[in-house]
Simulated assay, not measured.
Amino acid sequence: MTDVPLGAALRGAVDLSALRNRPAPAPAGAQPPASAPSLVMDVTDETFPQLLELSRTVPVVIDLWAEWCGPCKQLSPILERVVLELGGRLVLAKVDVDANPQLSQAFRAQSIPLVVALVGGQPVPLFTGAVPEQQVREVFAQLLQLAAQNGVTGTLDVSADGELDGEPQAEVEPPLPPLHAEAFEAIEAGDYARAIVAYEKALAENPRDDEARAGLGQVKLLDRVQNLDLAQARAAAAAAPLDPAAQFAVADLDLAGGHVEDAFGRLLDLFAALAPDERAPVRERLVELFALIGDADPRVVSARGRLASLLF
């Protein structure tokens, strides 16, 4: 199964607080990630906290692997090649799960290879298992878009062979349009309702404002899930399998946690079970979630195909 980076995934996909707050003395002979000699580095339980700071400048892709894992050996060279080709816009951190149990537990590495990212110190689920190189490129492109939406737009100075040359340099960005700036300020304050209004005004002024459209979808999801309890939501959905509101809540939580296929599957099953005159809200929610993930994503393509077969 693969997951896709989302703005909502920046909130609570995994709990890194213990690793973030612990002291991080580097082991003998090790270099801290922020001064690592290349864009591909080995990271340990002890050196991981320094990655959190680096991820405020560039997204950090984390490859959780093990020596005994065959698919890991297939995927790792692909990750390294794509990261190096991006010329300092991403960093790859390799974590041996056998040698670093705290990181393995923090990222819930139940199966490997597991690839996640850090953006501004927050985790973003990417995918599990060995995937084709083209899919890696597509996911990394989405990750860079997500990072830009969250103000992480730096680039590391690198030589032709991928070695770092100097300190990370943040790009100088043009100022945000006023309504976008208002939305970002509201999101930082946790006032999602105000952010929604700002993005809606931006779209009213310019219906082709794709950044506002993407931001609106993400902040609506954040607004819906911020006070939900997963256990309670699942219990309510189990008790009322044909209640759209109950199923929507679990689907939102699944999507926010990176379980894209689970979210789509739940809503498609609900759509199939409802009478034709009751299906419209479910279809609208599916279309909204499709837009969050992106039309080119294979999970969206598959879900759209199933929706079309149910419609006709």
Rank of each mutant, 00 (worst) to 15 (best):
L6E: 05
D15S: 06
S17Y: 04
S17D: 15
A26L: 15
P33K: 01
A34M: 10
A34E: 14
A36E: 08
S38Q: 05
S38R: 08
S38Y: 11
L39V: 09
V40G: 08
M41I: 10
E46N: 11
S55Y: 07
P59L: 09
P59K: 02
V60P: 04
W65V: 03
A66H: 05
W68M: 09
C72E: 06
P77Y: 10
R81C: 03
E85Y: 09
N100M: 09
L103N: 02
Q105L: 12
Q110S: 14
V115F: 10
G121L: 02
G129P: 03
Q135N: 05
R137G: 03
A141R: 12
Q142V: 05
L144E: 12
Q145I: 15
A147C: 11
V152Y: 01
V152E: 05
G154F: 07
L156K: 03
S159N: 14
A170L: 13
L176M: 05
E182S: 11
A183K: 08
A189L: 07
A189R: 10
A195V: 07
V197F: 11
P207E: 11
P207V: 13
R208I: 09
A212W: 08
Q218W: 06
V219C: 08
V219A: 01
L222R: 07
V225H: 03
Q226S: 08
N227V: 13
N227G: 14
Q232L: 13
A233W: 00
A245W: 11
V250E: 05
D252N: 15
L255V: 06
H259D: 12
L268S: 13
A275S: 15
D277L: 10
P281L: 03
R283T: 13
E284D: 13
E284T: 12
E284M: 12
R285D: 00
L286V: 11
F290L: 02
A291D: 13
I293T: 07
P298C: 07
V300H: 02
V300N: 06
V300F: 01
S302D: 13
R306Q: 15
